[in-house]
């Protein structure tokens, strides 16, 4: 094995990418001219074949992160590699091996669905015959084989979204970037899209997805990084993240007034691990839920407060986000 040359005159192993990772960022930073720190020293590692999600509210820095990884946003600090290629130094090489679905519909309106795929393949160096073959293959993959001859505007929103994803796959990229792929898609269209994405992942496609829908991250991603204000707050599989809450049951209690005595009384109920104030009311984190709700309700009523609502749930990524930031994911 040859010893790799150092990057851009800054020698040392710290500047070399981790061979095992398909996407890697080190202290990646974007400070916009206006003074907004959109991404703050981000360290990220995505393995080959992984379905990775960046979950966070609007303005968390997800789109800027994807923008930098896909060469459209110029970072102000840090380094990043895709399949071992330094993104800043070798943009054209990186573009060749990534597929990008941006938040906006960027389909070529003057071409048909099939032509969109064909010409995309040609941009990426496929021969005419290859491009024709791939266009037809992808059209089937995104279940639009019947609509190949339709102009883009004649397709429904969900179909256009599938075509967008298909187009990003024509040149068989090593990594597929999806920026909020199901925003503005009807529920049925979303399910169809999820199916396609899971199928792609099953075939070994490395995918980085951003979303502010926690169901989407939970359903699709093997690992999720929860992002807010340009930083990663927590990272792990959806199960790991949910376990980090430290409770199997969450009882959300809306009561008035919320007094320290009420909180103390709730904490004393056996099985309750902690009580926190959240945006939706008091959150009672507890172990197994059997028989717990009546006890919690009783304890609350004994404090002479007005009980407005009580809801039982299991931890979700939303809970994780709320506990980390004190806010809800969708605000």
């Amino acid at each position: 094995m040859t010893i790799p040359q150092a990057q851009r005159g800054r020698p040392g192993p710290a500047d070399l990418p981790d061979e095992r990772l398909t996407i890697e960022t080190r202290r990646l930073t974007k400070l916009y001219p206006g003074g907004t720190l959109a991404v703050d020293a981000l360290d990220l590692g995505v393995e080959k074949g992984e379905f990775f999600g960046l979950l966070g509210p609007n303005g968390a820095g997800k789109t800027t992160t994807i923008g930098m990884l896909t060469t459209r946003v110029v970072p102000t600090g840090g380094e990043m590699w895709i399949a071992g290629i330094n993104v800043r130094a070798h943009q054209q090489d990186v573009k060749r091996i990534i597929g990008v679905v941006t938040q906006f519909n960027t389909l070529d309106r003057r071409l048909t669905a099939w032509e969109n795929l064909y010409h995309h393949g040609r941009y990426f160096g496929l021969s005419r015959a290859e491009a024709r073959k791939e266009a037809t293959r992808v059209l089937e993959l995104v279940r639009l084989e019947e609509r190949g001859k339709s102009l883009v505007d004649a397709l429904s929103g969900g179909m256009q979204q599938r075509l967008l994803i298909g187009r990003a796959l024509v040149h068989r990229p090593e990594v597929l970037f999806l920026d909020e792929p199901t925003t503005g898609i009807d529920p049925q269209g979303r399910l169809a899209l999820w199916d396609i994405l899971l199928q792609l992942h099953a075939q070994g496609q490395t995918i980085l997805l951003t979303t502010h829908y926690m169901e989407e991250a939970e359903r699709l991603c093997q690992r999720v990084a929860i992002m807010d204000n340009g930083k990663i707050l927590a990272m792990g599989s959806p199960d790991e993240l949910k376990r980090s809450v430290g409770a199997e049951t969450i009882i959300t209690l809306r009561a008035e007034p919320v007094t320290p005595a009420l909180v103390a009384a709730l904490e004393n109920v056996s099985g309750v691990r902690s009580v926190e104030e959240g945006p939706r009311g008091l959150q009672v984190l507890a172990g197994a839920s059997r028989g717990l709700v009546p006890q919690v309700a009783e304890a609350a009523l004994a404090q002479d407060v007005q009980l407005i609502d009580i809801a039982v749930s299991t931890p979700t990524l939303e809970t994780v986000f709320m506990r980390l930031t004190g806010r809800e994911l969708r605000e």
Binding site: A6, E19, G84, I85, N86, D93
Partner: peptide, 14 residues
């Protein structure tokens, strides 16, 4: 036109 790409470390693509 990044010819130096070929010499950069960890480059696996064409």
């Amino acid at each position: 036109m990044t010819t130096e790409a070929a010499a950069s470390p960890g480059l696996r693509a064409r």
